[in-house]
């Protein structure tokens, strides 16, 4: 069920055949009121997408935390692996010129 690049480690239930049918795991993303993008808030179990949204509403928006819910079954998420940290992110460390502060602009020029 779970692929080598899934978001979570293998569980005994995914390695061997699950004893019983557990409701699938869904990852929940909520968009708050103030124009921010959807943000991952946690996960939950539900039989289908409709119930996943209903459950997400009960579990993650009891205090007006959001105005929009996304759910996606956890097994559909592909994740980068911690061992790729070097090759993936190190190249950007040497490219300081990508940041505006790299360039000295004289005060006389004004705000830029």
């Amino acid at each position: 069920m779970s692929s080598p690049n899934s978001a979570y480690p293998e569980t005994p239930a995914t390695q061997t055949k699950a004893k019983r049918q557990e409701w699938p795991l869904w990852e929940v993303f909520i968009r708050g009121q103030h124009g921010m993008s959807h943000r991952h808030v946690g996960s939950l179990h539900a039989p289908d997408e409709e119930m996943a949204i209903k459950n997400a509403r009960d579990v993650y928006t009891r205090r007006n935390e959001g105005v929009s819910i996304w759910v996606v079954e956890a097994r559909h998420i592909a994740a980068s692996s911690p061992s790729e940290k070097g090759p993936l992110y190190e190249p950007s460390e040497s490219k300081v010129y990508r940041h505006p502060t790299f360039f000295d602009i004289p005060d006389e020029v004004g705000a830029m």
Binding site: Y8, P9, E10, T11, P12, A13, A18, K19, R20, E22, L25, G42, S43, L44, H45, D58, V59, R62
Partner: peptide
């Protein structure tokens, strides 16, 4: 009622946290 519902929510946040370690909810 709201408080007891929160407790259920707290349990669920923690279960889903524990599940990221490779144990299933049913276990």
């Amino acid at each position: 009622l709201a408080k007891v519902q929160d407790e259920a929510g707290h349990g669920l946040y923690l279960y889903c946290g524990a599940e990221t370690l490779g144990v299933t909810r049913d276990e």
